[in-house]
């Protein structure tokens, strides 16, 4: 057990934590925007899958990581637009359309992978970028400042998202639309436009989450590559109380628990693997129970807006 506290293990654990947290953080930040505007997008996992495939395929055939990332973002936006059309314009049940989107992403990425690639192949993903000077800081330097560029972007997005939500007119409009769309509408805000924007931005981040797996972490594509991480991301939004910082802590907690349980197993600590696997989930549930996130939910979450119907 004492081995767990050695610097080597701690460095490794925290490094793994950042790697695992990155796709969750992208997806959960995106979902935060979507939900803050009142739309629950359960299709995150499907968006991640199709974007992960798109990014992987571009890198496999063309080689440019940057183009792969852009393609993943565009796929995300397109799927976000589809989600918005169904749930905002057509006012359909958000849960059903989200699950539909998820199944579409799962099926379509699987199909395209089979037709266009066929078998498991690996690509060269985003390399680690050592930030000079900062990476020299003892202990923390190698953990925080020796990662690939997507990790930096994901964590840089946390304060940016916070700023947008809390300090700009755009954020005010998004929050108002999620809390009381009729009030926003009566102030001349285009409720549908704000929801389209929020959902599409969220879906774009989900696309980056997909890329963060296929061309940055595992550097390959396989059927159901995300293994349900999109759904974890949705749960993290509730966990984080709909705030970027809360969502980040959620993603970090979940990931550090995962990384810890792997180390427990590697070091041969006598814990049954099944129990160790449950650790992140148990921890999340415990924190969720203790923290009071009730009442923080956007009041118009899941409710389509139709002018004059309150």
């Amino acid at each position: 057990m004492s081995e767990l506290l050695s610097a080597n293990v701690l460095t490794g654990m925290l490094n793994t934590m950042l790697t695992l947290a990155t796709p969750l953080l992208f997806a959960a930040l995106g979902e935060t925007f979507s939900q803050r505007s009142g739309v629950v997008n359960l299709g995150v996992d499907g968006i991640m899958l199709l974007s992960a495939f798109g990014a992987f395929y571009v890198v496999l055939t063309n080689g440019s990581l940057f183009l792969g990332l852009v393609v993943a973002m565009l796929i995300g936006i397109a799927m976000g637009a589809a989600m918005s059309f169904v749930s905002v314009t057509m006012k359909a049940e958000q849960g059903v359309s989200g699950i539909g989107l998820q199944m579409f992403g799962l099926g379509m990425s699987s199909l395209l992978f089979k037709v266009m690639v066929g078998t498991v192949k690996t690509v060269q993903g985003f390399p680690r970028v050592r930030i000079p000077l900062l990476a020299e800081i003892p202990f923390l330097g190698p953990i925080l400042f020796n990662n690939n560029v997507l990790v930096y972007i994901a964590f840089a997005l946390v304060p940016i998202c916070w700023y947008v939500l809390e300090r700009t007119t755009i954020g005010l409009a998004i929050k108002a639309v999620g809390q009381n769309p009729a009030a926003a509408d009566s102030r001349g805000i285009n409720v549908d436009l704000v929801r389209y924007g929020s959902v599409c931005f969220g879906a774009m981040l989900a696309g980056m989450a997909g890329a963060a797996i296929s061309i940055s972490t595992v550097n390959l594509f396989q059927d159901n590559l995300t293994a349900g991480q999109g759904f974890i991301a949705v749960a993290l939004v509730y966990f984080g109380g709909w705030t970027p910082v809360g969502v980040m802590f959620g993603a970090l907690l979940f990931s550090v628990a995962n990384s810890l349980q792997l180390w427990l197993q590697v070091l041969g600590v006598n814990v049954p693997a099944g129990l160790a696997n449950m650790l992140p989930y148990i921890l999340t549930i415990v924190v969720l129970t203790i923290s009071v996130s009730r009442g923080k939910a956007p009041a118009a979450l899941n409710r389509p807006f139709l002018r004059g119907e309150n």
Partner: peptide
């Protein structure tokens, strides 16, 4: 037509152009 979780000032600012562009 008020957003109960927001402050008075935020409710008044809602939907209005800010004197600082995007910044509230």
């Amino acid at each position: 037509m008020l957003v109960p979780t927001m402050t008075v000032a935020e409710n008044v600012a809602l939907g209005q152009p800010s004197t600082r562009g995007l910044r509230l």
